[in-house]
Design a protein around this nucleic acid. Structure first.
Lengths: 195, 195
DNA sequence: TTTCCATCTTTACACTGTCAGGATTGTGCC
DNA sequence: GGCACAATCCTGACAGTGTAAAGATGGAAA
């Protein structure tokens, strides 16, 4: 943005590339994602990303790791303004799950619907594991004990997020944000564990 | 397979290309899907598909339209061997939904997690609409009346299918097929409309 | 048989990711 | 301060991709 034309060693190229990559992902979608476009947007040569991320998969892996942290943050933001009882916290996590998918659909698709990130990467594994453990913790706090308890909550939130982000749930297309939230709450409450 | 080397006008190139495309999709995934590889597998020049499908998106669109029909058939196969009461039919549809995702994960991802097919295409719209209407019909037959009823069933089945096909539900990784079916049944029964 | 047209091939071009080698700049050591 | 070294970035090249244009082939209608 405010950089003067000093090509070499501008310090935080790695962060700039990650930012440019997410913008490219949001604008062109994951299908047309191009490493050269990212480099061009960052104002750098087409081979510069290789030094920081290895290859295109490495860049998308780093972006996914960062994305999982933001994904978890979106859930926690909803939990922070929800009643403290475990069922309400679980419903709030579902709302945050959908928030993230609707606000950043391309990134959401990178996290859950793409095989380009290398899921053996330590950073990505750690970030994804944190999001997973957070969900498991919420389910257990609400009294969930079985695999079905965990799967029901996760699958329902994930299905709502994926279908809404893709615009497939046509009946919800005309909903306002509050109507949509109310619907999500209603659905999530059906799968929250009941002791 | 049993074709003799008669290059020109071998009759059913369109069907052969669709078959090759699905095989390529299953083997290399949607990320590495290549039109030239499909043509090579079909034993034809790399520009031959253009005449039948226009461009790569056209081929994937036709593949998706065919895929939605098979997707609906997988649900109906489960319904055919289930009790005839509406709730059981709805649970069976969910099992078929997951069956399809597990047996053809790349195709499932093409249908629900890709923007490459052209969803304005008439054939694709018709096939997707048929699958959607079938679900809506089952929900209504079971007593569902609200948007939440429809969304709960669809999202849960879709979430289970997507997460299982991606291998994300680690707790289910060690399950046998019957154990997995039992878990899916248990989850689906929580969101089936109850009058 | 002759003409026409759908089908398929060949050729070409721009774009992509990746690699090798060269240019530039900051940094530790004397 | 001056210098070798390493980190960083650029240039150039290559194989592979999708797509368009133009030519080749063979079936079908006249």
């Amino acid at each position: 943005m405010s950089d003067e034309p000093k090509p070499y060693h501008h310090g935080d190229l790695r962060a700039v590339l990650l930012h440019a990559a997410e913008a490219e992902l949001a604008e062109r979608g994951i299908e047309a994602f191009s490493l050269r476009s990212v480099a061009k947007r960052a104002g750098v040569s087409h081979a510069a990303p290789a030094h920081h991320f290895g290859d295109a998969g490495g860049l998308l892996t780093a972006l996914a790791a960062q994305g999982f942290q933001q994904f978890l943050a979106a859930q926690m933001a909803r939990e922070a303004v929800a009643p403290p009882d475990p069922p309400a916290q679980l419903v709030a996590a579902g709302l945050g799950y959908v928030d993230f998918a609707l606000e950043r659909p391309a990134l959401f698709r990178l996290l859950f619907g793409s095989s380009r990130p290398e899921y053996g990467n330590a950073d990505l594994l750690r970030a994804a594991e944190a999001a997973y453990l957070h969900l498991v913790h919420l389910v257990q706090a609400a009294g969930g004990r079985t695999v079905a308890d965990e799967a029901a909550v996760w699958a329902t939130a994930h299905g709502l997020a994926d279908l809404l982000a893709a615009g497939r749930l046509r009946s919800v297309g005309s909903f306002s944000a509050v109507e949509r939230d109310a619907m999500i709450r209603g659905v999530m409450e059906r799968v929250v564990p009941r002791p």
